[in-house]
């Protein structure tokens, strides 16, 4: 079963544990500046929104890459950067409509979410289940369930 990250912003408290977990997993250091997932805090609305790559099926970044450095991991469905091929041209960062591929000046390569090889550290670190790793074909499952639970089909019959 292919799985995807599912993000429910209303559960996010803005603690940034996900950013820390991501940077630790990928860079071996606690450093949100090197995280592939970012939490955006909208102060006046009181909202915190985690945001990262959604692993497009037909990925703009992959299509744009002139060196075929972005490859699909067949097991996880993740679009992964092959550092051996990446030349740091940043065309993928322009192509991505969502901004989730970014350049890392320290390495001269781009970085993006690779689903940690199928066990994303951000989802494991999230204390409120705002980020979960779920069946890719059913990312809407819990939302559907919540709405389903609110449906009161008995009231009219019982009146």
């Amino acid at each position: 079963m292919l799985r995807s990250l599912s993000i429910e912003p209303e559960k996010c408290t803005g603690c940034l544990q996900c950013e820390m977990a991501c940077s630790y997993e990928n860079e071996g250091v606690f450093n949100p500046a090197k995280s592939r997932i970012k939490v955006f805090v909208f102060e006046r609305e009181g909202r915190n929104v985690p945001y990262t790559c959604t692993q497009c099926a037909d990925a703009w970044c992959k299509n744009a890459c002139p060196t075929e450095a972005i490859q699909i991991n067949a097991a996880t469905g993740a679009k992964e950067i092959n550092n051996g091929l990446c030349v740091g041209c940043k065309v993928c960062t322009i192509a991505c409509p969502f901004g989730t591929v970014n350049y890392n000046h320290a390495t001269g390569k781009v970085i993006k979410c690779d689903l940690c090889g199928g066990d994303p550290a951000c989802a494991k670190a999230c204390p409120t289940q705002a980020i979960t790793f779920v069946d890719a074909d059913w990312t809407g499952y819990s939302k559907m369930r919540n709405w389903a639970q609110r449906t009161d089909t008995q009231s009219s019959a019982q009146v």
Partner: peptide
């Protein structure tokens, strides 16, 4: 909403 400080 609830709000966490960094890392909390």
């Amino acid at each position: 909403a609830n709000k966490a400080c960094f890392g909390c």
